[in-house]
Amino acid sequence: MVSTLSSALEIVARTDPGMVRRHNEDAVFANPNQGFVILADGMGGYNAGEVASGMATMLLSTELETAFSAKPPHAIDSETGKTFAHRCILDKVALTNSAIHNAAESQPQYAGMGTTLVAALFYDNQVTVAHIGDSRLYRLRGEEFSAITRDHSLLQEQIDSGMILAEDAKYSQNKNLVTRALGVDPEVETEIHDYAVQPGDIYLLCSDGLNDMVEDEEIQITVQMLAANLELAATQLIQMANDNGGRDNVSVILVKVLSEFPATRGWWSKLLAWFR
């Protein structure tokens, strides 16, 4: 395992309240050295969404930083046969969910608060993506721009069942009704998957304040045109959302893969890998 991923990944994180909301209930976090990013879009009463998203990013990031400092994410978990990254993320998200839920239950001003979550951990030439709700992760690879995550929302369920055509989804009244959220219930199901990473890939995490305001095609063109300047790309994406109305908070995290980042293994692990 390399000691830092900051030379292999370029990361830019931005969040903006938008043009309508007085408070920013989104939160973003990036750890370039350990190669993970987190984005949360809070929901709830006055200030409660801000508390939920803030708790999500801070608690989860602290737990992951501690865990991955003690054990590398590529290590194989003996109980599940999957990477330590998988088990760790699922465990730490569950812990974070409980903390937010308990705060909502014990403090009346936070009753009903919750947050979406999308997190990406880069290690050993792959990325593990975990998400809850309708915040998204897109990947730009060459000319192909695609959503890696699938929304946990009533609208997505209606599209999947054929009740609504995908092209008509933007006009739906159910656009922002999520079917999963962090902190709302005592337990939550986290969707988690692994994907191979290639140098040149650009990953975009965003809250719905971006993709509700800007078409995917426009997002793709912007990221492609400004791929050499992620700072400007992030600024431009937020500006586009605000120019189109900015009805919600808007957050973006851009991650560009600059080079390969294979894990450094001991001689025994290398020997086992050679015989496989």
Rank of each mutant, 00 (worst) to 15 (best):
M1A: 12
A8T: 07
L9G: 01
R14C: 11
T15H: 05
P17C: 03
P17H: 03
G18L: 01
M19F: 08
V20G: 04
R21H: 10
R21A: 02
R22Y: 09
H23I: 12
D26E: 05
F29Y: 15
I38E: 09
L39V: 08
D41G: 09
G42N: 07
N47L: 13
V51S: 02
V51H: 03
S53D: 08
A56F: 10
S61D: 02
L64S: 03
L64P: 03
F68A: 00
A70W: 05
P72L: 05
P73T: 04
H74C: 12
T80V: 03
G81D: 05
T83F: 02
A85L: 04
R87P: 02
R87F: 04
I89F: 05
L90P: 03
T96H: 05
T96R: 05
N97Q: 10
S98W: 11
A99Q: 14
A104P: 00
A104G: 13
S106T: 14
Q109W: 01
G112Q: 01
M113H: 05
T115A: 08
L117C: 07
L117H: 02
L117A: 05
A119Q: 13
V127A: 07
V129H: 03
H131M: 06
I132V: 15
D134L: 09
L137P: 06
Y138N: 11
G142L: 09
E143H: 12
F145I: 08
I148G: 09
I148Q: 08
T149K: 06
T149Y: 04
D151Y: 08
H152K: 09
H152M: 07
S153H: 09
L154N: 04
Q158H: 13
I159V: 14
S161N: 14
G162F: 08
L165A: 15
E167F: 10
E167H: 12
A169T: 06
A169F: 07
Q173R: 13
V178Q: 05
G183T: 01
D185T: 12
D185N: 13
E189Y: 08
Y195T: 00
A196T: 10
L204W: 01
L205H: 04
L210D: 04
N211Q: 10
V214R: 09
V214E: 07
V214K: 04
V214C: 08
D216G: 10
D216I: 12
E217W: 08
E218M: 11
I219T: 12
Q220F: 09
I221Q: 14
I221K: 13
Q224W: 01
Q224F: 02
M225Y: 11
L230P: 00
E231R: 06
A233F: 06
Q236K: 14
Q236S: 13
Q239P: 00
A241F: 09
G246T: 02
D248R: 08
V250I: 11
V255T: 14
V257F: 03
E260D: 13
A263Q: 04
A263G: 12
T264G: 10
G266T: 08
A273P: 04
F275H: 10
